[in-house]
Design a binder for these strands. Structure first.
Lengths: 96, 96
DNA sequence: GGGAAGTGTAAAGTATTAATTAACGCTTAA
DNA sequence: TTAAGCGTTAATTAATACTTTACACTTCCC
């Protein structure tokens, strides 16, 4: 089902992965990103791209999937908040 | 693990969900998208956004997750093909 | 033959978003 | 007081999705 309400922004989660005492500047350098870009992500002002997910995976030893999946959940949740035209289900699913 | 090599573009998969005989034009109308946009998706010339995933979910009775996840896998695979600076793992994970 | 419908694609325009570098003001620690 | 780190803004560049309009092509049907 993959239910989840109000999934966290990936940046919040990434925060928890940064080793104690590591500066944002250091992390940005390690990832080959600018300090501004990483700061934006960590403060939920930018999202994680496929490219960034791959960098995080290499750096942290996680799957890239983890990050891209998290971003997807977040995006879906945000998009669901916005108005959208009513869409009629293609067929009334008749089970019985 | 979520391993997958060469994951299909979501548009290819969407193709299979369209009922026999339904025209692209009809499907686009049902989804509230322009014909051009849907055609691009089906021909793998555009991706599926969170908004589009929600429309597909409503229309087809699937989860939105399915589509956004598929797009994520596709994006990751494409991104992985491109060059990226070498990134040193943060710590050599010493298990023993 | 000739029209109508459906399709793929291209072009032009709008909007969003991620990325960069440079710069500013703030806080904290030496 | 200086230096480092941080968050944030601004200006720029680059993608990408989406729209409408338009064109060329095929297929089907009279």
């Amino acid at each position: 089902m993959s239910r989840m309400h109000n999934p966290p922004h990936p940046g919040e989660v990434l925060r928890e992965w940064l080793p104690e005492g590591m500066t944002v500047t250091e992390a940005a350098n390690a990832l080959g990103l600018s300090r501004v870009t990483l700061s934006k992500i960590l403060n939920t002002h930018a999202g994680i791209t496929a490219d960034t997910a791959l960098r995080l995976a290499k750096w942290l030893g996680t799957s890239a999937d983890l990050w891209i999946g998290m971003q997807g959940q977040y995006d879906l949740w945000q998009a669901a908040k916005k108005p959208r035209p009513k869409i009629r289900p293609i067929v009334a699913k008749l089970a019985a």
